[in-house]
Computed example of a mutant assay.
Amino acid sequence: MTTEVISPHRGKPVVIGIHVNENTMREPNPHIPWTPDEIAETARAGQDAGASLMHVHGRTADGGADHSASTYGAIAQRVRAVSDLLLAPSLANLPGSTVTERLSNLAPHQSDPERRSDFLVIDMGCAAMDLLDPATGRYATETKVFVNDTRTQIELLSRAEELGMKPYLTSFNVSWTRAIVAHAAARELPLPLVVAFILGGAEFPAAHPASAAGLRAQLDLLPADLAIEWIVSAYRGNVLEAAEEAVKRGGHVAIGAGDYHYAELGYPSTPELVSEVAAIARRYGREPATPEQARRILGVDVHAHS
Rank of each mutant, 00 (worst) to 15 (best):
S70L: 13
T71D: 08
Y72S: 02
Y72G: 02
G73M: 01
A74Q: 12
A74G: 04
A74Y: 03
A74C: 04
A74M: 08
A74I: 01
A76K: 01
A76H: 11
Q77S: 15
Q77W: 09
Q77C: 13
R80C: 03
A81C: 09
A81Q: 14
A81L: 09
A81M: 08
V82I: 06
V82K: 03
V82A: 10
S83T: 07
S83Y: 02
D84V: 05
D84Q: 12
L85V: 04
L85C: 02
L85G: 02
L85T: 00
L86P: 00
L86H: 01
L86E: 00
L86Y: 02
L87P: 00
L87W: 08
L87Y: 09
L87C: 03
A88P: 00
A88I: 07
A88V: 08
A88C: 12
P89Y: 03
S90F: 05
S90G: 10
L91C: 10
L91Q: 14
L91I: 12
L91R: 12
L91D: 03
L91N: 12
A92Q: 01
N93P: 01
N93A: 15
L94K: 13
L94V: 15
L94R: 15
P95F: 07
P95A: 02
G96I: 05
G96D: 09
S97A: 15
S97L: 06
S97E: 11
T98R: 10
T98Q: 05
T98A: 03
V99R: 04
T100C: 11
T100H: 14
T100D: 15
T100M: 14
E101R: 06
E101I: 03
R102M: 12
L103W: 01
S104V: 08
S104Y: 07
S104P: 07
N105Q: 11
N105D: 11
N105M: 03
L106S: 04
L106P: 00
L106D: 00
L106E: 02
A107G: 08
P108W: 06
P108I: 07
H109M: 01
Q110S: 08
Q110C: 04
S111Y: 11
S111R: 14
S111Q: 15
D112Q: 08
P113H: 11
P113Q: 11
P113D: 09
P113G: 11
E114H: 13
E114C: 11
E114K: 13
R115M: 10
R115L: 07
R115G: 04
R115Q: 13
R115T: 02
D118W: 05
D118E: 10
F119I: 02
L120K: 02
L120T: 00
L120Q: 06
V121L: 14
I122C: 04
I122Y: 00
I122W: 00
D123E: 13
D123A: 12
D123N: 14
D123V: 12
M124E: 01
G125T: 08
G125Q: 02
G125N: 06
G125R: 03
G125H: 01
A127I: 12
A127G: 11
A128R: 15
D130N: 15
L132E: 04
L132A: 10
D133W: 07
P134E: 11
P134V: 07
T136V: 05
T136H: 06
G137E: 08
R138T: 13
R138H: 14
R138F: 11
R138G: 13
Y139V: 05
A140R: 14
A140E: 12
